[in-house]
Design a protein around this nucleic acid. Structure first.
Lengths: 201, 201
DNA sequence: GTACGATACGGACCAGCGGTCCGCTTCTTC
DNA sequence: GAAGAAGCGGACCGCTGGTCCGTATCGTAC
């Protein structure tokens, strides 16, 4: 049960694979990046890729989670407005804004993850965690309606392909989109249209 | 310019293909239904399938639109609460409820369409139409915030994979889900939690 | 430093998919 | 019923995710 440490070359290859996948996904659309491409770009055999990540969606999930981790820790133990010390009414919009910004900054990743076809994005424990946190916060605010569904609905407003559609196809600029989401969130929370997202990010 | 009528066998095959696809999609999950399967079940060659629908997603889109048409006409020229005579404040929830019910009744289709991978569901003119209608209605209500984004966000709350997740994984019963969506919609529209969806459907 | 078991490597290989092609059949028209 | 257009169908293709296993590398005990 002591769970042996992984071999050195294994971790090196794993890192190289993640880096290569990230680069390639940033260049072309997800469906044009094959596992063989990633393997070649990482200077690694295809078998290695599959042993390290199980399958294609495992690779993408690993990459996504690695990128998301900074935000996750900022939410769990960071300072306001993301951290746990923030009162719910400000924290909910802050969380959604952070999530939106993340998807704006990592369009290719989020798109690849959600659009990978087979496995629904709702079955990842990524999603479960965000949903649970949001639900709890909403519970504390205790606005009208059911917190569980409200949490789902708010998260749905930040879906990667919607974000992609609005910024890509419809040319909505980043700051405007953030503002619109903030307004929308405020309207759901029942307050009279908030003051908009903070200036950073 | 007179656009010749299609041949008789062509329409027969087209119909058979749609029926076969519908049946198969209702049985297994979308990714397990191959074009060859559909062709075989329809008693038709694969080439015929592709000539009739262009590609896989064309088939699914055709099927989806055929099923959705009753609702579409009910919305365009039917009686309240779906038809154009309805005042916006009741029509918006009615539309969303109808859409939700449709996705509940046709889970396999909606899932196949949105989950087909490649083409984003936002690029279909299906979506464009629903969005435009909803936006206009919201404009008339003139609640807080931006109608365009609000329309997107409300539609996102009825996404097929979310609906599937809630009814399938989380075992939320149909009527409860309808009620939750109605409450949520009401909270977005700014009113104090509506009276719930109608009893029919 | 060396020997040895465990672990990981990598690319040839495979099955199955969406999609194409083209010789042949069926429909429509006059 | 003849002729030409339109449609048919299944062998075929390119490519993908995923597997397999002989070989190379690593960690460890001496």
């Amino acid at each position: 049960m002591p769970e042996r440490a992984p071999r050195k070359d294994a971790v090196r290859n794993r890192t190289a694979a993640l880096a290569a996948a990230d680069t390639l996904l940033a260049q072309r659309s997800p469906e044009d990046v094959t596992m063989a491409d990633v393997a070649a770009a990482a200077g690694v055999g295809k078998g290695t890729l599959f042993r390290a990540f199980g399958d294609r969606s495992g690779l993408i999930r690993a990459l996504y989670e690695a990128r998301l981790e900074p935000i996750k820790t900022a939410v769990e133990e960071g300072p306001p407005p993301l951290g746990p010390a923030t009162p719910p009414l400000q924290r909910v919009p802050a969380l959604l804004d952070a999530l939106l910004c993340f998807k704006l900054d990592n369009r290719h990743l989020a798109l690849a993850l959600e659009g990978t076809g087979a496995d629904s994005p709702y079955r990842t424990n990524q999603y479960e965690q965000w949903h649970a946190l949001l639900r709890d916060l909403l519970e504390q605010i205790a606005g009208p309606g059911d917190s569980d569904f409200t949490a789902h609905a708010l998260l749905a407003a930040t879906r990667a392909d919607l974000v992609e559609h609005l910024t890509g196809e419809k040319r909505v600029p980043r700051e405007e989109l953030r503002h619109r989401l903030a307004d929308y969130t405020a309207s759901v929370l029942g307050s009279p249209a908030g003051s908009g997202p903070a200036a950073d990010h």
